[in-house]
């Protein structure tokens, strides 16, 4: 490919600028509003220069057990991500390696679980969890989120496992390794980018999920997404707190994605088999 001309470079940067503005504006609004004193919150035109205040954050952590909801969210998200990666990866490995003419059907059946609309199963879930006494527990959300995350992980990881040459596993077998060790030391490390991608998807989905969290939790297991919504009551909308809460919600997601990013390298299997 030839080096881009100056005009092309300018165009690319312009395009990037537009994209960044579209994505960053809401984040800016959240961040700035969360530290804006209440009286000037709805000033028109909006105030860009003001003395920031932490009043919303103080009231957020002061008035409601917000830290607890934060912890709930973390437990549910990490729990579901870990659960889904473990079982989704093992299932994906089996589907990728077992040669059977019905294996594609199994894979599609797993994917189909992701296809029905969540709202259709909210009530059945509610009844089931009520019956077994799991209503308003993090475990309930971990289970529900995993039913969505496992199919995703299976499909992503199957693609990555398919790319790992069988010859490498055969080499390890002849070198003296059993099935599980071969998987652990050879196949899985080579599919690490897939693990990172799956982890990001599972985490972000669990972290952002609203509908199930709203319906299946009460005061105990409530997650932050639901907690923030509760500042929107019939008599008053506490915008300051909503913005402060939303900003805090952003942080773990960003940290998690950045952590996973270093595993997102391509071409891990280069040079193995000619």
């Amino acid at each position: 490919m030839s080096a881009p001309s100056k005009r092309q470079t300018v165009l690319v940067y312009l395009l990037l600028a537009v994209v960044l503005i579209v994505f960053l504006t809401p984040i800016y609004l959240i961040a700035s509003s969360s530290v804006k004193p209440s009286p000037i919150m709805f000033q028109k035109p909006p105030a860009f220069l003001f003395t920031p205040t932490l009043e919303h954050y103080e009231s957020l952590f002061g008035m409601r057990p917000f830290a607890k909801f934060m912890l709930n969210s973390l437990v549910v998200s990490f729990g579901s991500t870990a659960f889904s990666l473990t079982f989704g990866t093992l299932a994906a490995y089996a589907i990728s390696r077992i040669r059977h003419k019905r294996m594609n059907d199994v894979a599609f059946w797993i994917l189909s679980m992701r296809m029905f609309p969540p709202i259709a199963v909210v009530v059945p879930y509610y009844i089931i969890f009520k019956t077994v006494g799991l209503l308003d527990t993090p475990l309930a959300l971990i289970i529900v989120y995993s039913t969505a995350n496992i199919p995703l992980t299976v499909w992503l990881m199957k693609g990555f496992f398919d790319e790992v040459p069988m010859a490498l596993e055969e080499a390890a077998a002849v070198d003296g390794y059993g099935l599980f060790e071969t998987f652990w030391r050879i196949t899985l490390p080579l599919a690490a980018p897939g693990l990172a991608v799956s982890a990001v998807f599972c985490f972000v989905f669990s972290w952002n999920e609203f509908l199930f969290a709203l319906m299946l939790t009460g005061s105990e297991a409530q997650t932050v997404t639901v907690a923030v919504m509760s500042f929107w009551s019939s008599d008053a909308v506490q915008w300051g707190r909503i913005m402060a809460g939303s900003f805090i919600i952003l942080i773990p997601g960003v940290i998690f994605v950045l952590t996973c990013q270093r595993w997102l390298v391509r071409g891990l299997t280069m040079g193995s088999v000619k």
Binding site: L168, A171, L190, S272, V273, K274
Partner: peptide, 8 residues
């Protein structure tokens, strides 16, 4: 192996 199968 024919294709060497080195652990990459």
């Amino acid at each position: 192996f024919q294709n060497y199968a080195l652990y990459p």
